[in-house]
């Protein structure tokens, strides 16, 4: 199962305006693992995620997905294996109807319309949104949009799911549904978020980023239980950990 491994080696990215968003990141994520990427605003989380499916290409170092380096040439295959759920579902849902949108990926990868439709319906069922097929994405609630955005990725049957702030803008019920959904995945999951409670529930391991570098990584509960470390990097110790381990 080595082809589901995601690996970054000394990864760095400099934007055209000279801003160095990430500087020398190295990590290795194994098959089926669920990893949280945490850190303050501007730590480089989003930039890092965009490298995982070749939306951005490294200025230095490399990203490997299943032993393949991510380059311009390999990015079409990489994008099939790595499904990316973007922060704003309005950016991700660009087609006129929900069904068209979920079928967009499968159609691009050459599935026949009938097959693509089946896949799309199955993916919508998986996230509990099969009744919304004919809706316009604009009309959906934030929670529904998020679920459909996840379905667009599932329809491409990726091995690895990457998510940027999946719980932003969700109401508590929508967030709860999302967490249960994420827990039920067997995919390798990489989730960048400020929602530390979500990380605690869904992820076994966290990578803490600040100023474009990895500060530390380790089991989620251990890293996030270090109050001084968390405060130093613009975060805080999750409440649920405080209750479990009173002073």
């Amino acid at each position: 199962m080595s082809h589901h491994i995601v690996e970054a080696r000394d990864l760095a990215h400099v934007y055209p305006d000279g801003h160095e968003a990430i500087r020398g990141i190295t990590f290795r994520i194994a098959h089926g693992e669920s990893v949280g990427v945490i850190g303050p605003n501007g730590a480089g989380k989003s930039t890092l995620l965009l490298h995982l499916n070749g939306c951005l290409l490294p200025s230095r170092g490399e990203v490997r997905v299943g032993e393949f380096p991510v380059t311009r040439e390999t990015s079409p295959q990489v994008r099939r294996a790595v499904g990316m759920v973007f922060q704003d579902p309005d950016d991700q849902l660009f087609m006129p109807t929900v069904l068209d949108d979920v079928a967009f990926g499968p159609l691009n990868y050459g599935l026949a319309p009938g097959e693509a439709r089946q896949r799309a319906v199955a993916a919508l069922e998986r996230v509990g949104m099969a009744n919304l097929q004919e809706q316009t994405p604009y009309r959906l609630s934030a929670g529904e949009k998020r679920a459909v955005a996840i379905a667009t990725i599932l329809a491409m049957t990726p091995d690895i799911v990457v998510m940027d702030e999946p719980s932003s803008n969700l109401d508590p019920r929508g967030r709860r549904r999302l967490i249960e959904l994420l827990k039920s995945f067997e995919h390798t999951r990489i989730i960048a978020t400020h929602d530390l409670e979500l990380v605690l529930e869904v992820c076994s391991r966290v990578i803490l980023l600040d100023a474009g570098s990895v500060v530390t990584e380790g089991p989620a509960a251990d890293v996030m239980n270090d109050e001084s470390l968390m405060l130093k990097h613009g975060l805080e110790r999750p409440h649920s950990l405080r209750h479990k381990h009173p002073h």
């Binding site: 939306c55 994008r79 950016d91 006129p96 967009f104 691009n108 319309p113 693509a116 990725i153």
Partner: peptide
């Protein structure tokens, strides 16, 4: 910026210049 992000999202799902839809 939005156009940029939408483009990234499209590319992430295999967009190759043709918009296909179920007809």
């Amino acid at each position: 910026d939005r156009a940029h992000r939408v483009y990234a999202a499209m590319r992430a799902r295999g967009f190759d210049g043709r918009v296909r839809a179920l007809r």
